[in-house]
Design a binder for these strands. Sequence first.
DNA 1: TGATTTATGTACCGTATCGCATATAATTAA
DNA 2: TTAATTATATGCGATACGGTACATAAATCA
Lengths: 196, 196
Amino acid sequence: MARGRPRKFDADEALNGAMVLFWQKGLSATSLDDLAQAMNMNRPSIYNAFGNKDDIYRQALARFCGQLDQGVAETLEAMPQVRDGLRAFFDRAIEVYCGTQPALGCLMVCTAPSEAFSHPEVGQDLRDLIQRLDQSFSKRLQRAQAEGELAREVDAKLTASLLQATLQTIALRARTGTSRQSLKKIAGYAIESLLR
Amino acid sequence: MARGRPRKFDADEALNGAMVLFWQKGLSATSLDDLAQAMNMNRPSIYNAFGNKDDIYRQALARFCGQLDQGVAETLEAMPQVRDGLRAFFDRAIEVYCGTQPALGCLMVCTAPSEAFSHPEVGQDLRDLIQRLDQSFSKRLQRAQAEGELAREVDAKLTASLLQATLQTIALRARTGTSRQSLKKIAGYAIESLLR
DNA sequence: TGATTTATGTACCGTATCGCATATAATTAA
DNA sequence: TTAATTATATGCGATACGGTACATAAATCA
């Protein structure tokens, strides 16, 4: 098996290169030449393996979201106490959002909205991610209520939306150069005041 | 006075047309031909009156921010009770963010971040707006505390950041088609739980 | 070994892009 | 009426763009 000439590139590595480039410049401002360089492939090979530019962008989005889901599972859902889980989740997000020079924030929050008008599928991807994150937060808050860790008066769904709002403002602020320390303060105060 | 051939276009109207177009498609995805049509001008006249594409975009941003500042002054700062002022402010923002079909959200939040990497001046514009809005919220909260309308335990600066987070999530969600009603619930719950 | 399959790399096509050069039109000052 | 000024309008020129055709290379199967 594995007929034909073997691939020169590593698909996972190439997609990661594309993701980083889109993370910096967004979809429209990124050219196929840029991509070819970042993915270490020629344009025809890219087209053959990943489809056109829009396709690659959405695969990069999916990759990014996958890492985010992993973060949710390993912090928010894994830790026994809600507040600890939330703090760990935000800490990890801040580390990703501020991990490059300059800081890039969140690929989804910072680049997808501007494409949503011209590329409805991207808008749908964004909508799906927001809903999924709302769900993750909400489920975790409900569990905390069931375990007696969180007051029943807290509206789980709306609080979930505001926790996501906190994540989004952290993404946007990170992209404008706000320090990790300031961002952690915001996250900490959100947990403190929203989970009362 | 007023020598030379008179202008055919209305500068304010033209800039407004440019703003709407950028609001839809962002900076990179908008061409000068698109702009010429939306502004009802030919490219050389645009160039003569407003400069290059980046210049026009930043002027459109400034125009949008001006309207936002006006909203702050007429709601948040004008109304005697903080909570009423905040509610009115969010209501007005929601009306703007959802006022078109499809809804476009906020020009700054939804299109500027993706350009910030390649256009540092745009990143600076975004940073400035965020800081100014933090300030506006914070000042208003402090005034409410001085007037005995808001508990002293509330951290004005951090609460201001979370109110802005609420505004930003409303902008993003509006752009993905979330209803006015849902957005108003989020705004209402933010006021209720953050101003406790 | 020869046929088949899959990927690579060069080179190209048609189009869209930004910015400007040049000519023309419309107004005021002298 | 003439010169000066300012804007418009046509159109060009060089480049960049996305996407693909075509020939070549490298592997497996028979």
